[in-house]
Computed example of a mutant assay.
Amino acid sequence: MPSYSIREINTILKGELIGDTTQKIEGPEEIQKASTNHITLIGSTKYLKYWAASKACATLIDFNVDMEPGDNRALIKVKNVDLAMAELLKLFNPATPVFDIDIHPTAVVHETAKIGDGCKIGANCYIGKDVALGKGVTLYPNVCVFDETSVGDSTIIWSGTVIRERCMIGSHCIFHSNVSIGADGFGYRPCDDGKGLVKIPQIGNVIIGHDVEIGANSCVDRGKFSATIVGDGCKIDNLVQIAHNSIMGRSCIMAGHSGLAGSVTLGDGVIIGGSASIKDHTTIHSGATVCAGSGVMNDVEAGKTVLGYPAQDARDMLKQWAAVRQLVKCKKTVS
C-alpha cells in the first residue's frame, strides 16, 4: 500500500499546510474511524467537534474554517474539500482486476466483429455480429454486446452487463455490474376484444454519449422508434430506470431508485433526486432540480427546484408542510 508524507500530499492538492506531522499517511478515513496513519476531511463546521478526539494525523478543511491542528497533526486548507478528497482518493485507489490475456479463450467473438487495439475481453463474454469496439475497451467477464452495436474508445463495462443490438455507446464510459442497455421499452395496448394486451414493437435503439457513468442494475430501454438518448457526461446511480424515447441532455445526474417514464426530456445539468419519478412526455428544463421522493406531473422551468408529490415549487411546498404542522398543533390545543 502506498504512503505519503503530509507535504507530498499538500503539494498534490495545492492547499495551505497548517502545522505538521511526522506520520506517514496510508489512506483517507472518516473522522471518527480514522487511525494515526489516516487523513480525514472536515466538510462542514458540524464535524469540528470530532477533531479533538479523532486519531487522524491530518485533515482537509475549508479555507474559511478556523481551527488549530494540535500536536504532531496537520491541516490542509483547500477551496473545495470534496474535490480535494476526490484527488486524494485517486492516490490510494487500488488497481483494477488484472487480465492475464487480452481476450479470454472462453469469450465468443463473432468473426465480423471489429476489435480495437488494446481491448480486453474477459471470460464468457459474447460479442455479436458486426459489433465494433474502439481502442482500449475493457469488458469484464460475462458481458454481452449484441449485433451491430458500437462501443467507443476506453469504455469500461463490468460483469453481467448486457448491451442489446444496434446501440451506440460513446468513449470513456463506465457501466457497472448488471446494467441493461437497449432492452425493449414498456409498450402495451388492450386488445380489441378486451381479453388481453398487445405488445408494441420497440424498433429503435439507445445512444449514449461520452463520459457517461451508469450504476449497477440500472436500465436504459430502447426507443419505440428512433432512440433513447443519454447525453455526454451524465451520471446515473444504481437501480435507475430510463424508459423508451427519453432524452437526457449533458451532465445530468439521476440518484438511486429514480425513474423517467417514456418520452421524458431533460435539459442540460438537470438533477433528479433519489426515488423521484417523472411522468411520461414531461420536459424538465436545463438546470432544474427534482428533490428526492418527488413525483413530477408537469413540465419544470429552467433552474427551478421542485419538491413533493405532485411536485411543485420547493419553497411553496415547504410552506404548505409548515402550515399543516401548525394546523395539527392547533387541533391538539383545541382538543
Rank of each mutant, 00 (worst) to 15 (best):
M1H: 13
S5A: 13
I6C: 12
I6G: 12
N10D: 02
N10C: 04
N10Q: 02
Q23S: 12
G27V: 08
Q32N: 14
A34E: 02
T36K: 15
T36P: 01
N37H: 14
I39A: 10
L48K: 15
K49H: 09
A52V: 10
L60C: 10
L60F: 09
R73G: 05
L75V: 06
L75E: 01
K79R: 13
V81G: 02
A84Y: 03
L88F: 07
L89T: 13
K90T: 09
K90I: 08
F92A: 01
N93W: 09
N93L: 13
P94D: 04
P94F: 05
P97N: 05
H110Q: 08
T112D: 02
K114C: 04
G118L: 11
C119W: 13
C119E: 11
I121G: 06
G134P: 07
G134R: 02
K135C: 09
V137N: 05
V137P: 10
V137Y: 10
P141D: 00
D147I: 03
S150R: 14
S154Y: 15
I157D: 01
I157Y: 08
V162D: 00
I163E: 03
I163K: 10
G170H: 09
H176N: 12
V179N: 06
S180K: 05
I181W: 04
A183D: 13
G185V: 05
F186N: 07
G187T: 05
C191I: 01
D193H: 12
K195P: 00
G204W: 07
I208V: 15
I208M: 15
H210V: 04
V212C: 08
V212T: 09
A216I: 08
S218H: 10
C219S: 14
G223I: 05
A227S: 15
C234A: 13
D237E: 04
Q241R: 11
I242N: 00
A243I: 04
M248Q: 05
G249T: 08
G262Q: 05
V264Q: 01
G267D: 01
G269N: 12
A276L: 08
C291A: 15
A292T: 11
P310G: 03
Q312C: 11
A314T: 02
A314C: 12
A314W: 10
D316T: 08
L318A: 05
K319L: 14
R325A: 13
C330S: 14
C330A: 13
K331R: 14
K332E: 14
V334Y: 13
